[in-house]
Write a protein that binds this DNA or RNA. Structure first.
Lengths: 195, 195
DNA sequence: GACTCGTGGTGAACAGTGTTTACCACGAGC
DNA sequence: GCTCGTGGTAAACACTGTTCACCACGAGTC
């Protein structure tokens, strides 16, 4: 075996390899051995850096939650309502950018056991959205009884739009553009009225 | 070629066995051989009734779409708006009743390739919701530009609520009751305004 | 330099998977 | 009594995730 400058194999490299494979293919086709092959190494070697396949996938999912948070950070709008709109579109863009990774986020969610606090990487993005909602409420732009619930509902609606697009309706490019806006604007309009 | 009801296997029995296994466990734990075992038969025997594992799961998914349609059929409300509310809750109930089957519906969706028309079992449920929306529009209860788009957005929002609850927030029973109503009422309020 | 030793990997093996192939028991039709 | 097709089985193939025994090799110490 030619001992070329060994890749040095780190946990980050393993997670990155898994992420790359998921970006190119389906989640069902991802194999632990395949990740090892991409790294030019045999499968048992990975167990030094990763507990097992599940934990590896969970790490990829967590990483992708932070990619979402980064996307959210790039959103910049003074008006809270506009920020909500942009955050929603960023969420859907994130989903459409790599469907396999997006689905993975929720197939191996980072410990969804004990409420929102046990959801740390997800919370970062969630709280950015919550902040926009609360700001809009404070500014009198939205009239909602429970800002937390309103934000959760907004997330659910946007998440649903992303899933629907991932289901194949996104093939029609026109719908992809229009559906997320329809969902967001309708939700905002419903909250502006205060019911 | 005749449908001789032999004491042995049938396609329906195979699909039913797979469904039962999915009702009790996770989708990742379902194995083709496991389905055969439950039927007291070896795995190759199933290939007489089912193309492969994917096609079997797709059949289970299709069947579960019809369960949803049946649930929708049971909804009876004179007021279109009330019908929309009940349909939404029925959808979420359907999801929470057996999460593995609900997720399967969209993991192996019945041919999501060519728009809605190629989605026959799904369309049945979808069209029942669309009918309610159109009725509400005709009655002047909702003011929407594009009823189809509005209904799609409504589905997306309710679907998202179901997914969010399945993600673990449903553990808090209170949220399960409240979130779906929040989403539906907000969407309705947004459509009532007509923006 | 020779000797130990832990680090970071290999190869083989185990149990299980989806799927294909070859085979066979058995009941119906002539 | 003979075919013959139907409906199943057993064995095998190529995978999978995971564990175990082993070993090459660089560093540390005498």
């Amino acid at each position: 075996m030619t001992l070329a400058p060994s890749p040095g194999l780190s946990r980050a490299a393993v997670v990155a390899a898994a992420r790359e494979l998921l970006e190119e293919g389906d989640a069902d086709d991802l194999s632990f051995r395949g990740v090892a092959r991409r790294l030019g190494v045999t499968a048992p070697a990975l167990y030094a850096y990763v507990e097992d396949k599940q934990e590896l996938l969970a790490a990829v999912a967590t990483e992708h939650f932070e990619v979402l948070a980064a996307r959210f950070l790039a959103v910049d709008a003074a008006d809270p309502l506009d920020r909500i709109r942009l955050l929603g579109r960023a969420y859907v863009d994130h989903a459409l950018a790599s469907p396999a990774l997006f689905r993975l986020m929720f197939r191996y969610p980072p410990r969804p056991t004990a409420g929102l606090d046990a959801f740390p990487p997800a919370t970062r993005a969630f709280e950015m959205a919550a902040a926009a909602t609360e700001e809009a409420v404070a500014a009198g732009q939205l009239r909602v009884a429970d800002p937390f619930l309103a934000n959760l509902a907004m997330w659910a609606a946007v998440h649903g739009a992303a899933e629907v697009l991932l289901l194949g309706f996104g093939a029609d490019e026109a719908i992809a553009e229009v559906l997320v806006d329809e969902v967001i604007e309708t939700m905002l309009a419903g909250q502006i009225t205060g019911r």
